[in-house]
Computed example of a mutant assay.
Amino acid sequence: MRKQAFILLCVVVLGVVGTCHGGGLKKNYYASKCRDAEEIIKNATEKRVAIDPTLPAKFLRMHFHDCFVRGCDASVLVNSTANNTAEKDAVPNQTLGGFSVIDDIKAEVEKKCPNVVSCADVLALAARDAVSSKFKRPLWEVLTGRRDGRVSRISEALANIPSPFSNFTTLVQNFANHSLNVRDLVVLSGAHTIGVSHCSGFFNRLYNFTGKGDQDPSLNATYAAFLKTRCKSPTDNTTITPMDPITSLTFDSNYYVVLKQKRGLFQSDAALLTNGGSSNLVNQLLNQNKFFAEFAQSIKKMGAIGVLTGNAGEIRKKCFAIN
């Protein structure tokens, strides 16, 4: 009876059962439809990561940005048209990279199994496989069965993607809006252990934190001085800085070590130390085995946000365009 009531609630609130949190996803979804789908994606991803070691961070960030807008429906991959400005062109997404690689991986799957595997699943699997490639084992489970959305709007990306300038309260609310809790917030922030940022993501912390030409007092002074040698203009859109200044290409728990040293790059990183509960979680996640175990749970949860399944959405032929 409770299950029936839940399904009814999903229909009333969201319009289709398939959009309920995680509904319809399962292990080996493509086993009978395209037996080699996940292997094709894994091999194609690993081949490209071997050439470009920055792809794990790019795919992970892209997956995150996708799921936080309309759910994990590959809407972030869609190109703008004359009649619509898509998510991809929103400021938070203008620094994403790897779109063409996702398109290429999708094309390889299409050769084997046309019109079967969604771009949303390609992205979710490629993010996992790219990050896992160095470990020779999958770091988390990816349930599949997502379908692709038909809508991608710049306004929704601006409204839903967490800002690097957010304080703790804003971050908690943003994650709660997507059925993620404080633990998920702290754990998923650990993805900042790989990847880079442009100066615009933290420039205010160096030069104008409160609007008075001051520096963020919560930022390690020595680290701030180093960052100032790299970022000298708020309009610098080319200089990049590792989010983890020590192991920016290695997926590990070093993000939390750096955070404890007050060297978290973003205001949103430093915010995790402003709350007792989240600060305690940071201490726990210094243990890499603990971080990996927790990350596997939180990203699986994130990967189920607002998914389209069943007959909802579509299976895009090309990830950058609605059919």
Rank of each mutant, 00 (worst) to 15 (best):
R153V: 13
E46D: 10
P56N: 14
E141I: 15
T81V: 14
P245T: 07
F226S: 11
V131T: 04
V307D: 00
A82S: 10
F175Q: 05
A270R: 09
G145S: 12
N79I: 07
D252I: 06
F320C: 09
G18Q: 05
F99Y: 15
E110V: 14
R183Y: 07
L281D: 05
V258C: 02
L227E: 02
L265Y: 03
R153G: 04
L158W: 06
G71T: 06
K47V: 15
A31E: 15
I51C: 06
L55Y: 03
G303W: 00
R70T: 06
L185G: 02
N93F: 05
I246H: 08
F203M: 11
A82I: 11
A293R: 07
K290T: 14
A57Q: 03
I305G: 00
I194K: 01
L158R: 10
K88I: 12
A159Y: 06
N208A: 10
I51F: 08
A321M: 15
A270H: 04
Q284D: 14
P53R: 10
N311Q: 11
G313D: 03
T247G: 04
R48E: 15
D148W: 06
E108L: 12
T170C: 06
S166G: 05
G149I: 04
R70E: 12
I41D: 00
A312S: 12
D244V: 08
D66A: 11
F135K: 09
A312Q: 04
N181S: 11
A74I: 05
G71P: 00
H65N: 15
T239F: 09
D36Y: 12
N237W: 12
D269R: 05
N204Q: 14
V122Y: 00
E141A: 13
T19H: 12
V91S: 08
K112M: 12
K47R: 15
L206P: 00
C67A: 15
N115P: 00
F202Q: 08
N287Q: 14
V11G: 07
I240A: 07
V196M: 14
N311K: 11
N115S: 13
L308W: 04
G195M: 10
L206R: 01
K27F: 07
V11L: 15
T210Q: 13
A271G: 03
G306H: 03
C231P: 00
V257L: 14
S200E: 10
F68Y: 09
P234T: 12
V91D: 06
G277P: 00
S200D: 08
G190D: 06
V282E: 02
F64S: 02
Y255F: 15
A37R: 03
N289Y: 13
V258M: 09
P114M: 11
N289H: 10
D73I: 12
D244A: 09
P92N: 11
D148M: 12
V187E: 02
D148F: 07
Y223V: 09
G211V: 09
K42W: 08
S155E: 14
P242K: 07
S268W: 04
